[in-house]
Amino acid sequence: MIADQIVRDLLSRPDIVGTPTPPRIVVDSEKFYNDSSQRIDRDMVTGALRASLSRAAAGRIRFVSRESMDIVMRERELKRTGVADTGTRGMTQGVSGVDYQLVGKMSSLDSRDMKSGLVQRRTQVVFELVDLETGDLPWTSQPYVILRAAGDDVVYR
């Protein structure tokens, strides 16, 4: 749901996708911060987000993997030294440059009612698109809020 909303927001912005060449964006866990009280696998979150964004964008936005740079550079070296042929796509002068990076931050606020044992958690996730040439923030998501509450069982007190 969040990925669909992000893609709709990004695709509605002519300053981001209004060029004949689709913008290139990095989505990885390096710049996804978890300042919440929950243990969350950042790689799992950003991997699922990247997959959903890629499907929903349908080629109107290109996603670049900086996480795979080691295997890209190894293959480029094999091609350039003649150990491997150029493949079906040929060679380029350099790897794909990136226009934007999607960064995110997750934070939470927890409260506990000592009388009832009710635990409430408000988790908020905000994403921003950073222009990697200028440092501008051409887009910021609405805050995505997740509210949870649970009772504390007397047996476990």
Rank of each mutant, 00 (worst) to 15 (best):
M69V: 09
G18R: 13
T92C: 07
P22T: 07
D28V: 01
R8D: 15
A3Q: 04
P143H: 01
M106E: 10
G151C: 03
G87I: 07
S116K: 00
S65T: 02
S96K: 06
T123Y: 08
V7R: 03
A150C: 04
M44Q: 14
G59N: 02
I146F: 15
A57H: 09
R121Y: 09
G59K: 02
S37P: 01
D9T: 02
V64M: 01
Y156D: 13
G94H: 08
T46L: 10
V45M: 01
L53N: 00
T81C: 07
F63E: 12
R39W: 06
S68Y: 01
G117K: 03
T86Y: 06
L49E: 07
I71K: 08
S107H: 00
S107F: 11
T21C: 12
G94N: 11
T19A: 12
R112N: 11
M44I: 02
V155W: 05
S12G: 15
A84Y: 10
D41T: 05
G82N: 05
G59V: 01
M106W: 03
T134Y: 12
I2S: 06
R66A: 06
I25Q: 06
G104A: 04
E67A: 10
P138G: 11
M1L: 12
D131M: 06
T140C: 01
M69Q: 13
R60V: 10
S107P: 02
V130D: 04
P23A: 07
G90C: 01
D9A: 14
G97F: 08
S37Y: 07
S96L: 10
T81Q: 11
L109P: 01
E75W: 01
V17L: 08
M73V: 00
R62A: 03
L118V: 14
Q142V: 12
K105N: 15
K105P: 03
S107A: 13
I6H: 01
F127G: 02
E67P: 05
E77D: 08
D41N: 15
G97A: 13
L10S: 08
L132V: 12
E133A: 13
D113S: 06
Q120S: 13
Q93R: 14
D9Q: 07
V45S: 06
V130Q: 05
S29D: 06
M73S: 00
R42C: 07
D15W: 03
V83T: 05
F127R: 13
R8G: 15
V26D: 04
G135S: 11
Q124I: 15
M73K: 01
I40M: 14
L78C: 04
A48V: 01
S68L: 10
T88S: 06
F127W: 10
F63Q: 05
E128K: 14
D35Q: 09
T123R: 14
P22R: 04
F127E: 03
A149P: 10
R89M: 04
G117W: 04
Q124N: 07
I2P: 00
V145S: 15
D136R: 10
P20A: 15
G59F: 02
D152P: 05
R13L: 11
V130F: 08
V27I: 15
P138I: 09
L11T: 10
R42Q: 15
P23G: 02
R42L: 12
L11K: 08
T140P: 00
I71M: 06
R122P: 00
